[in-house]
């Protein structure tokens, strides 16, 4: 059984990713701030396949201790890391608040970078050709009012992923970004209906991006079938062109 570390596992697209991974036979090592009844149910229905650790990614200094010494030690070979957890700080640039910006970067950028460090260390210790997937956002590629700061944090992940792919490719480690379009989740709940409608109308399909479509593509990128895919940004965004 292959072991996958998934952040932001307990709701939204993370929960869909967990379900997709379970259906494909992976062991899921979930991480989130708070467990939800839905994730608890997944654990109960899939004993010894679905695990959980409560951890706040706003604390990147504790990544090694909490996630790799107390949860996924080197005795658990890590085959994949899915960086899904994120927070959205949306506001126009002239209102930028540095404390809120720093907090978003701790969660969206610094913790994922640090988790990648220890995930790759686990992979090379166990001589595993692991796969890393970062969940990015269409806002990196298409501008939206109020999302400059959030999009900046996701753009940092895309650059990090491409360079991870180049750096660790010769050890068989792959890294890709799933560029998700706007989904109807708690994270976009702060956007007004008008704004959401305008966003969805900009897509080819005129509908929100389906969570299952994002989740199943991530499961594919983690899998052996995607062994020649690395350093890429894969758009699953209802055709935002």
């Amino acid at each position: 059984m292959k072991n996958i570390l998934l952040t932001g596992c307990s709701r939204g697209v993370g929960l869909s990713i967990a379900k997709s991974l379970i259906a494909s036979g992976y062991n899921v090592y979930g991480v989130s701030r708070k467990i939800t009844p839905e994730y608890e149910q997944l654990m109960n229905e899939n004993e010894n396949q679905v695990f959980y650790k409560s951890f706040d990614l706003a604390d990147p200094d504790s990544v090694q201790e909490q996630l790799f010494k107390n949860y996924i030690t080197n005795s658990v070979p890590l085959h994949g890391f899915i960086n899904n957890a994120a927070i959205a700080y949306d506001d126009i640039i002239t209102n930028l608040n540095l404390d809120r910006l720093r907090n978003m970067y701790e969660v969206n950028v610094f913790s994922p970078y640090n988790i990648t460090k220890y995930a790759i260390r686990n992979m090379i210790y166990n001589r595993v050709k692991g796969s890393i997937v970062h969940v990015s956002s269409i806002s990196v590629h298409t501008g939206y009012k109020g999302l400059a700061m959030y999009a900046g944090s996701k753009g940092a992940l895309e650059a990090f992923s491409k360079n991870t792919a180049r750096e660790w490719g010769e050890r068989g480690v792959r890294s890709n970004c799933l560029v998700a379009g706007f989904m109807d989740t708690d994270m976009s709940a702060t956007l007004g209906d008008d704004m959401k409608d305008r966003i969805f109308k900009r897509t080819s399909l005129k509908v929100p991006t389906a969570l299952e479509s994002v989740a199943d593509m991530i499961t594919f990128l983690i899998s052996e079938e995607a062994k020649s895919i690395t350093g890429q940004n894969i758009h699953v965004d209802s055709g935002t062109i």
Binding site: N74, R121, I124
Partner: peptide
């Protein structure tokens, strides 16, 4: 450098 990265994790373990 990749060998040294592996050496680091093996010694740390």
């Amino acid at each position: 450098s990749f060998d040294l990265a592996e050496l680091t994790v093996r010694i740390e373990e």
